[in-house]
Deep mutational scan, measured.
Amino acid sequence: PQEEYKKRAKKALKKGDEDTAREALKRAGLSPDQAEEFIRRFL
């Protein structure tokens, strides 16, 4: 589910792994723009 992928993305970002985070967010159904926004907000 979407929440699970978002959790995964946050874990990846904590490790500084933005590529894995983007992949997880893409799987969560976010557009690339939404994924970038999510990452920017998190960092």
Rank of each mutant, 00 (worst) to 15 (best):
A28M: 06
L30Q: 02
D19I: 13
K7W: 06
G29L: 04
R8G: 06
F38V: 04
K11R: 13
Q2D: 13
A9P: 01
K10G: 06
P1L: 15
A21P: 00
D19E: 13
P32C: 09
E37K: 06
P32S: 11
K7L: 07
L43H: 11
L25K: 00
A35R: 06
R40Y: 10
R27F: 10
E36S: 06
D19Q: 13
K14A: 14
L13E: 00
T20R: 08
D33P: 07
I39Y: 01
F38E: 03
S31Y: 04
S31V: 03
E4G: 06
K10R: 14
K10T: 13
E36M: 06
K14S: 13
E37N: 06
A24H: 15
K11V: 14
K10F: 07
E3I: 08
S31I: 03
E37G: 05
P1E: 15
R8W: 09
D17H: 06
K14V: 13
F38A: 03
G29P: 00
Q2N: 12
L25F: 02
L30A: 02
D17K: 05
K15V: 13
S31D: 10
L13V: 03
Q34D: 11
S31W: 03
T20G: 14
A28C: 05
D17N: 06
K26T: 10
R27W: 08
D17R: 06
L43N: 09
K10D: 05
L43P: 06
R41P: 01
D17Y: 04
A24V: 13
K11D: 15
K15E: 15
T20S: 12
E23N: 07
Q34E: 14
E3S: 08
P1Y: 14
K15S: 13
K7M: 08
D19Y: 10
G16W: 03
K26W: 06
E18D: 07
E3R: 09
R22D: 00
F42K: 03
D17M: 06
L25I: 02
K26Y: 12
A28P: 00
E23D: 11
R27Q: 14
E36L: 06
P32Y: 10
R41E: 14
K6L: 15
A12N: 03
P32A: 12
R40C: 10
R41S: 13
K14M: 15
T20V: 09
Y5D: 07
E37V: 05
E3Q: 08
F42S: 05
E4L: 07
P1F: 14
A9F: 02
K11E: 15
A35G: 03
L25D: 00
K11P: 01
L30C: 07
I39A: 01
K15L: 14
R41I: 11
R41G: 09
T20A: 13
L43C: 10
E3P: 07
R8N: 10
R41V: 08
A21I: 02
P1H: 14
E23W: 05
G29S: 03
G29H: 03
Q2E: 14
G16K: 05
T20Q: 10
L13D: 01
I39K: 01
L30M: 12
I39Q: 00
K7A: 12
L43A: 09
I39N: 01
I39P: 00
L30K: 01
G16F: 04
E23Q: 08
E36H: 04
R22T: 04
G16H: 07
Y5R: 03
Y5C: 10
I39F: 03
G16P: 02
E4T: 05
K11C: 12
Y5M: 12
Y5N: 08
A24M: 15
F38S: 01
A35I: 15
E36Q: 06
P1M: 15
S31E: 06
R27I: 10
A35T: 12
K26E: 10
K10I: 15
K7I: 08
P1W: 15
L13Y: 02
R41L: 09
A9D: 01
A28V: 03
L25A: 02
K14D: 11
E4C: 10
A35C: 10
K10W: 08
A35E: 06
A9R: 01
R22P: 00
R27E: 13
E23L: 06
E3N: 09
R8A: 15
D17T: 02
A12K: 02
D33W: 07
K14R: 13
E18Y: 15
K15Y: 12
E18V: 15
E3A: 09
P32I: 11
E3V: 07
Q34L: 07
R8I: 15
F42R: 03
E37Q: 08
F42G: 04
E4Q: 08
F38N: 00
K14C: 13
